[in-house]
Design a protein around this nucleic acid. Structure first.
Lengths: 149, 149
DNA sequence: TTCATATCCTAGTTATATAGTAGGAATTAA
DNA sequence: TTAATTCCTACTATATAACTAGGATATGAA
């Protein structure tokens, strides 16, 4: 399991906001109920997403959260990184500083870099809108299957 | 850091064996000294690699380890997986059993699958021989740099 | 035969990270 | 005023990571 519940729950959570984009705010309690997850835990994750500028919040009664911009402008990578930290496979790649003195001739370092690029290409290339489209397609198919079955 | 020291040290370790392929066995102590890592820790990792059939061992004095087949026939994925377990980003993908009842219409599941395929494509596409070639190239360049600098 | 050098194997141990809980302050619509 | 909500800090239990310890077993060389 290379991702913790932070990244996994976090993406599920913001996906709920994406589904209800421009339909008003959604409270954490509602999200937690819908996903059947602890609301106090999701609260911490949401606070990270807010810090990252991905969601707006409205306090007080009838308050809640909403996406700060449209789903097509938020990538999966933007959601996962603030929650999981770097998705680097090793400490010698992807950080601000490359401390390892052997970097110039390290063979494994090249591998870690390729893995990281592979992951980045996936998560930076998918937006929340893409997820919605896939979800709609799946549900459409699901309906059809039920009809035929 | 999506990989633990198991996968990271393990690959470094077997890479040493790849470098000395067909030059006799190499003891764990030598490998540990070369990499400046704990030999008792590496021992556990090596035992996994042996179970996975990647290395042969010779016990007793003058004994040690060697690759069980040539470097071009061992992929990075074959090395990392026995050490790290599944590289799935979530429990609902990559396992033998897909337990999640929501799999049919889960939008995040598609993301985890894509990430996993991305990683697999990288690590299953690189052999130890590729690593050696890259390493030789780096060292060649290093020498040149030193000459010119 | 003995001994130093190795692998092999099982169990600890310690430190860190994960996955939460708890409790209350601040804010706001009704 | 009150109920609903976000915001914030701190605490806790559990699991995992990253080793360490100690001894059994095997083997080449003196």
């Amino acid at each position: 399991m290379i991702l913790s519940t932070k990244g996994r729950y976090g993406l599920k959570m913001i996906f709920q906001l994406a589904l209800s984009y421009e339909k008003g705010t959604m409270s954490l309690k509602d999200i937690a109920n819908k996903l059947d997850l602890s609301d106090t835990y999701l609260e911490q994750l949401m606070s990270q997403l807010k810090k990252a500028g991905l969601v707006n919040s409205i306090r007080g009664a009838q308050g809640g959260y909403e996406l700060s911009r449209e789903p097509s402008l938020i990538t999966v990578g933007e959601v996962i990184r603030p929650l999981e930290g770097s998705l680097a496979p090793s400490e010698c790649v992807g950080g601000e500083e490359t401390e390892c003195s052997k970097a110039d001739y390290c063979a494994t370092r090249l591998i870690w870099e390729k893995i990281m690029v592979g992951i980045d290409n996936v998560i930076d290339g998918i937006t929340l809108q893409d997820m919605i489209n896939d979800y709609d397609k799946l549900n459409e198919k699901e309906k059809g299957d039920n009809k035929n079955g």
